[in-house]
Design a protein around this nucleic acid. Structure first.
Lengths: 109, 109
DNA sequence: TCAGCTATTTAGTGTTGCTATGTACTAGTA
DNA sequence: TACTAGTACATAGCAACACTAAATAGCTGA
């Protein structure tokens, strides 16, 4: 992962994961695979798990342990009411930032 | 500043400042004032100065000391060739990230 | 038995923006 | 003179975050 993108991910990766969970419950390994699929090619396994622990500790998600046929049990996360609220705030902040940057990008050429 | 936005600024603030400098040379106090004007209301004075020191150390900008009529001399920064290259890379990374997030935002409703 | 995939955890590191404070120069004013 | 306020920059210490690296654990097929 380029260093720039790594720094940009701070704060936004959390929003990305919450947005994924707003669509459907998911577990860490699955989320990591999906992110890699989407072009976040070198996303670190540990990064996602640490993030999941954080948002759980903050009460943004509910967790359920579900047995897997292919390995150790999965920890399936789903967004709860508080998480949904937090996600909305994230979108507001993101939109604000994206607008400012778009202006700069257009003006810059 | 909301905690979310603070985290999002990590990595992007650098791009924002470089983008400003790509338009015209500027000094720290001026940049801070402009940011506040643009809605980054609580941006910390020290944050911008530290950032400027960093991008100078990395050779992305040239610096010139210019006397001010109203206070101590200004350090005027201007983007150099290396900085322009770095800024282009920033825009590529930003576009990548923004696209992914836009998809998530649309799909999420 | 052992390699390989699935699945999670965690200690340690570097980078970043923020807090808080200090310094320095000028002009206005009481 | 002494003070206040605006302009302008610098920096030590902190918290949060993504990454590195390595470990653990369950299952399957050769």
């Amino acid at each position: 992962m380029s260093k720039q993108l790594t720094e940009m991910l701070k704060g936004t990766l959390e929003g990305i994961v919450l947005a994924i969970l707003s669509g459907r419950p998911a577990y860490g390994y699955e989320i990591t695979a999906w992110l890699r699929d989407q072009g976040f090619s070198d996303i670190a396994e540990g990064t996602v798990y640490a993030l999941l622990v954080r948002i759980e500790r903050r009460g943004l998600v509910d967790v359920e342990k579900v047995p897997s046929e292919k390995g150790p049990p999965r920890k399936v996360y789903s967004l709860n009411a508080q998480g949904r609220e937090y996600l909305e705030e994230f979108w507001r902040n993101w939109s604000f930032l994206a607008e400012r940057l778009e202006q700069l990008h257009e003006g810059g050429n």
